[in-house]
Amino acid sequence: MALTIAMTIAADVRADSKLGDLAVLAIVVAAALKARIILSRYLGLSCAPGALTAFTATVVVLLAAVAFSFLASAFLH
């Protein structure tokens, strides 16, 4: 829940302006941490470290691709 609050602050939800690079990174990192907590604690992968790493890596790569596309769009346009 603390990560959701952090995400809310970073996303500046009441504003329509474009987010800065740091805010984009903060949101992506918070999402990755939340995903890791769900995988490890709720889905019980803490007892299967290899699978936890594989699932976490998948989520991180996905979020990194999304963040990259947001940051890259600033250079492309």
Binding site: M7, A11, V13, L19, V24, I27, V28, A30, A31, K34, A35, I38, V59, L62, L63, V66, A67, F70
Partner: peptide, 10 residues
């Protein structure tokens, strides 16, 4: 927690 920030917040 993965799709929400990507589609809505970012």
């Amino acid at each position: 927690v993965v799709i929400f920030p990507c589609l809505v917040l970012l």
